[in-house]
């Protein structure tokens, strides 16, 4: 008997509250609005935290559960069939319990194996990889794969940012919050999109991290370490090169030609970086599916937001390829989809 192929049966996403535009963000941060528009190229993002008061309106678990509920409510999907849950996130609500278990609780799911991956921009793909492997094992037939981040945990609106380092400040204009979920099945169901291949590989041996997110405990919470650090220069240099390498590696693995691609889902760093990377990927015959200019970089939610847009356009036989790079410790990631 051949190894079962995983299929995406449905997708759900959740973005908290109204979009926050650059004018509102620039005012709160005391930075130049046009700089965000031109340099970052992101127009809007969503925050789980109220930008005016700092009040937390949604937890990561709330957003993940909202996204999962949408995926579970889709035609051809039965919540009673869910046999496992995998969540990828860089920003869990608490270290324990793992947020995935709070999501299961909100969804009314019980007696299923749950996994949470501590992960950045490659996390959704790592979660897909785990889900695919579980289905390929033949032991599980249906599972829920989720990715989400609440980056606004670090958006301290009371903080005086006038003295903040650029590597600190840039995080406030790059990131947003959100979640996405997919129901994976062993047999084609619902959207009938086959997950043809998943790439998830650590390539950071001996390389300095491109992004660091600290966490603080009782003993070190008063340290003045920068909570988020972005080596933007290294990211600008390395990510486009890695993205091209990933594209060609995936095409080689699949024995697909670049011309075979109907859709390309490029890495979603920021509106401007994504435009640049897409140019370098240079697959003019494939339609680009991006969301970051409207959603902000909401980490583990991004591939699901892209797949949601993709499913609106995909017809039978269409092929799509997604590329992602996690610059924290330089992880290459990607996946290929085919509607059957």
């Amino acid at each position: 008997m051949s190894t079962p192929t995983a299929h995406i049966a449905s997708i759900g996403t959740a973005l908290p509250g109204d979009p926050v535009d650059n004018a509102s963000l620039a005012k709160v941060l005391g930075v130049n609005e046009e700089w965000i528009e031109v340099f970052i190229g992101t127009k809007t993002r969503h925050f789980a935290r109220d930008l005016g008061t700092g009040e937390v309106r949604w937890s990561l678990a709330d957003l993940c559960a909202q996204a999962a509920q949408k995926a579970l409510a889709a035609p051809g999907v039965d919540p009673a069939d869910i046999e496992f849950i995998v969540l990828g996130t860089a920003t869990p609500d608490t270290l324990m319990p793992a947020t995935v278990n709070q999501v299961a609780d909100q969804l009314g799911l019980d007696q299923v194996p749950t996994f949470q991956l501590q992960s950045g921009c490659a996390g959704a793909i790592q979660a897909l990889s785990v889900g695919q492997t579980m289905i390929a094992s033949g032991q599980y037939r249906t599972g829920l794969v989720i990715g989400g981040d609440v980056c606004s945990k670090h958006l301290d609106v009371q903080r005086d940012l006038s003295g903040a380092a650029p590597s600190d400040l840039v995080n406030f204009v790059l990131f947003g919050d959100g979640a996405g979920a997919a129901v994976l099945t062993a047999e084609p169901a619902g959207q009938r999109v086959a997950l043809r291949h998943v790439l998830n590989r650590f390539t950071g041996l001996g390389r300095k991290p491109g992004q660091v997110i600290e966490w603080f405990g009782l003993a070190d919470r008063h340290d003045d370490r920068q909570a988020l650090t972005e080596d933007y220069k290294a990211i600008e240099e390395r990510v486009p090169v890695m993205a091209v390498e990933i594209l060609w590696e995936l095409l080689g693995e699949l024995d697909w030609e670049a011309d075979d691609l109907d859709f390309l889902l490029p890495p979603q760093l920021s509106g401007r970086m994504t435009r640049r990377i897409t140019e370098e990927l240079d697959v003019p015959t494939a339609e680009e599916i991006s969301c970051v200019a409207d959603t902000g970089n909401n980490g583990n939610a991004l591939p699901f937001l892209q797949i949601e847009k993709l499913l609106d356009r995909m017809a039978d036989g269409h092929k799509a390829l997604a590329v992602a790079v996690e610059s924290s410790k330089w992880i290459k990631a990607g996946f290929a989809l085919e509607k059957i």
Partner: peptide
């Protein structure tokens, strides 16, 4: 040089 410096520089120049 890091292009991120432009953020501070633009604000400071203004």
């Amino acid at each position: 040089w890091d292009s991120l410096y432009l953020l501070k520089l633009v604000t400071a120049l203004e």
